[in-house]
Amino acid sequence: METRNPAIQVAGLTKSYQDLHVLKGVDFTVAGGSIFALLGSNGAGKTTIVRILATLLKSDSGTATVNGFDVASAPAAVRESISLTGQFAAVDEILSGRENLIMIAKLRRVKNPAGVADDLLERFSLTDAGGRRVATYSGGMRRRLDIAMSLIGDPPVIFLDEPTTGLDPEARIEVWQEIQKLAGGGTTVFLTTQYLDEAEKLADRISILHQGTIIVSGTLAELRQLLPPAKVEYVERQPTLEEIFLAIVGKEKQR
């Protein structure tokens, strides 16, 4: 899984709402086939970045390319390359799970929509619930359906905006397993999360968004080196990503 073309490239991205400067020059690169986690507190602007990359929002300045296509000048090509699973499970409550999948398959113009739907229901352990209205699903089932809908048409880049927010621990682990399978199959996964253990567990590379800019990027091992080595005093252990995050964010605030 070595880096091919970068799947996502973002440079100097800014976005303001009136006086609120959400993004103040964001830069990062995501290698194809990797899992990239964007970390940040609530309101840090993670969703704003996802919406810009998914062509739902225009940036004020800066450039962003997804799968080699510029989001501003070639939005249609970007949409062909991506799938978005937003913060709230974007599923149709009144349709059944199977009908949701068939609807997306038809919109993506894949062959044999019903067959695709049945395969995905099987893969996400939703076969028994496939004929039921989504309104009767649990949070974890909705999320699984949501992610299944994103896989239709095999887009090379998948955005998951806080995919496990509000899920119980078991459902989280199920979602994590699916994300790892996806990346194993060569799909680039762009993940935002506020759960640090999630990034620690899944991500090949991590970027931390704080006060409108990326304050640090790297692999978990690289981030660990940003702190002094573990002290061998009373307790010996590596700092967790949570400690790294809080230490870095805290330092920024003091500047």
């Binding site: 062509t55 739902l56 799938s83 978005l84 993506r108």
Partner: peptide, 10 residues
């Protein structure tokens, strides 16, 4: 519900 955004990112 967010399905509007899903459609628009497709």
């Amino acid at each position: 519900g967010g399905i509007f955004e899903r459609f628009h990112s497709m």
